[in-house]
């Protein structure tokens, strides 16, 4: 785990009462394997949620259901008033609202950093090219790598690539950001630069759901920590109480394992 300067206790960031994601009694199976079991989750605008849990607990699958990278079989998911169904129009509409950052960056290696960032605004939002480039440069500056704009992803370090991936998502001006283990594939000295960008994003009021093992990050920015195991949400609480006084045995065991070293 990396050191994120942390003063414990949830930061006083505004969370509105408006619910932007509403998942109700959602189930998912891979063949016969029941990966997500009657998930109920409401996310309000401005919330920063960290999801943790042992591997195979379904945490990545859960956030990938929100933008339909995975399909759920029963229950409902509603994102910003749009019901997630088989209707391609709804799926496209939700994907325009929801940005996603992956463990392995998934940048497009045949395009430059700038082209990676302008691609979706140009082709999905029909933004004129020079406007898209302006927007892209704005976000590249925010993640502190404007000087790499004309390079290809293969020429950047892992931390830089992940920051580009964050900028690429932000270029679509999403209302919600999903992070799927964004620092798990990074060398230790690069984790901080990515977390710093994410912390900044949280301070600006972005609604975020992060699957991560960075407990320092959870303590610093999250206003809710969710613990999942075997496809269920076992426990959720605000970070102070979650870490200091976990209720369930499974949570206690998990926390003792990851915080032991």
């Amino acid at each position: 785990m990396s050191e994120v300067a942390s003063t414990s206790g949830a930061p006083s960031l505004a969370v509105s009462d408006e619910v932007v994601i509403r998942i109700a009694d959602m189930d998912k199976w891979y063949g016969q394997f029941h990966v997500l079991k009657s998930i109920d989750l409401e996310v309000r605008r401005g919330e920063r949620i960290v999801i943790c849990g042992p591997s195979g607990s379904g945490k990545s699958t859960l956030i990938r259901c929100i933008n339909r990278l995975e399909e759920h079989q029963s229950g409902s998911i509603n994102v910003d008033g749009i019901e997630l169904t088989d209707d391609l129009k709804n799926i496209d509409a939700i994907r325009r609202e929801v940005g996603m950052v992956f463990q392995h960056f998934n940048l497009f290696p045949h395009l430059t950093v700038l082209e990676n960032c302008t691609l979706a605004p140009i082709w999905v939002k029909k933004m004129p090219k020079n406007e898209a480039e302006e927007v892209a440069m704005k976000y590249l500056e925010r993640v502190r790598i404007p000087e790499q704009a004309s390079k290809f992803p293969g020429q950047l370090s892992g931390g830089q690539q992940q920051r580009v991936a964050i900028a690429r998502s932000l270029c679509m001006n999403p209302k919600i950001m999903l992070f799927d283990e964004p620092t798990s594939a990074l060398d230790p000295e690069m984790i901080k630069e990515v977390l710093d960008v994410m912390i900044e994003l949280a301070r600006e009021g972005m609604t975020m759901i992060c699957v991560t093992h960075e407990m320092g990050f959870a303590k610093t920015v999250a206003n809710r920590v969710i613990f999942m195991d075997a496809g269920q949400i076992i426990e959720q609480n605000e970070p102070g109480a979650f870490f200091d006084n976990p209720q369930s045995e499974r949570t206690q065991l998990f926390l003792s394992q990851i915080l032991a070293h």
Partner: peptide, 13 residues
């Protein structure tokens, strides 16, 4: 697969 997912997550049809 990540390339497809990256593209889909950005909303590309």
């Amino acid at each position: 697969k990540g390339q497809y997912e990256g593209a889909m997550a950005l909303g590309l049809p």
